[in-house]
Design a protein around this nucleic acid. Structure first.
Lengths: 234, 234
DNA sequence: GAGTGGTCTAGACCACCCC
DNA sequence: GGGTGGTCTAGACCACTCG
């Protein structure tokens, strides 16, 4: 069973975006242009554009055309991965301290999370995020090195890892686990906590069409945390 | 601009389900049947069925037909509204104690949450959920009385409010706010806590196509709580 | 007015399921 | 074999945007 024509066109469009050849807000071919280019009817070309629009990859406007949607996520669940935005929106000051940025080989936990063979090349970054000088989030992130080779060359004092990934790749999906847990000793140290304390801990993964991009543990001290989400019920 | 034909057909199908005339797993008219009934082309009837399938309202199988999808949500985020399932899946025993079930008029907070004018008829239910005899969740729920008139006649010792709603209506969406907060005095009392304690608090709303169905605050004592979710990035 | 996306039609062929 | 959903075609009319 060969791939459906509309599906091939979807993949073509998606690859142009994922590869960076087409970027945010850029115009993509119209229904008629795709129909001519791929030698299909307009309805078939249309279906590829329409489904990518439904999936949030494209924005379409009558009379104007179809455009690459902004990569930046509007999902407030994903927002927690971008603590900087959250802090700035509260009118406070965000700073970040880089603890570690290095190449590693994936162990079992990371391999499972990233859907990679054990020993695959990954990058590991650990940061502390401050809100007005107070540590507010400890970030420990593993990234699939093959999907984001440029990750290790970034200066994460200037740009948060999540911001870099969001601007580099069209992230399509994310999952999260939220739990309240007692911080371990190392976490207490990094978050400058004296006594064992209940922390809100998020474990997040984000996807692009080609696979899992990153696996992250975010730990928040105390009760200063709020998470909102909206989702369709399947 | 009159409604599009495919949209009218969608509404017709949805109303049959929302009203209870068609229930879970029941077969709905085929593409050809709808095309004849509404005097449209098969492609137009098809679009109505296809979009409802994309939205999780219908399940379609080649060679078989289209069926009303199970109302019960597969979303693990929504799962927390159904604490009973969660407890039973852990192999423990769930019991519930009904504190209050009454008619009220919506105040400002509830009106905003349910998108109703102030003073609209709502039902209010408060319950304590126990896991093996330990209080694990305090549930305070407001329900739009017009959308679910039968709510107030239920016996919530037998069926949880969320279970009743899930089985009565096709819920299509939900939003949630998760936060860690110190319990107030009344909550401490109901959860049988002696000292002020950090609790995980969820504020949830669930939708049907006709509007917001319910607005609920769920409070969990201590750190015995875990929440997972998966979502597409928009 | 030319181009775009939104809707719609009346056909067509296919793979699949059940009888 | 008859019905179902999945894909596809080659047209059509419309509302919208832009120059």
């Amino acid at each position: 069973m060969p791939a459906a024509k509309y599906h091939s066109i979807k993949q073509f469009l998606f690859n142009e975006i994922a590869s960076g050849r087409w970027t945010e807000h850029q115009r993509v071919p119209s229904e008629n242009e795709l129909a001519n280019q791929f030698k299909v009817s307009r309805m078939t070309a249309r279906r590829a554009l329409q489904e990518l629009s439904d999936e949030g990859v494209l924005l379409r406007t009558k009379g104007l055309g179809s455009f690459v949607a902004p990569f930046k996520s509007q999902s407030s669940l994903v927002q927690v991965q971008n603590i900087e935005t959250e802090i700035v929106q509260r009118g406070q000051k965000h700073t970040a301290e880089l603890i570690t940025l290095e190449s590693r080989e994936s162990d079992q936990e990371v391999s499972i999370a990233l859907s990679l063979p054990i020993g695959s090349p990954v990058f590991f970054a650990a940061l502390i995020h401050y809100q007005d000088g107070q540590p507010i989030q400890l970030e420990a992130r593993y990234v699939n090195a093959r999907l984001v080779p440029g990750f290790i060359d970034q200066d994460f004092k200037q740009v948060t890892p999540h911001e870099y990934l969001s601007k580099t790749l069209p992230l399509t999906e994310a999952d999260h686990i939220v739990e309240a847990a007692l911080a371990d000793r190392q976490t207490l140290h990094y978050l400058k906590l004296n006594a064992p304390q209940a922390c809100l801990q998020l474990t997040c993964r984000s996807w692009t069409a080609l696979g899992v991009v990153s696996y992250t543990r975010l730990t928040h001290p105390g009760t200063q945390f709020r998470l909102s989400s909206q989702s369709a019920v399947n």
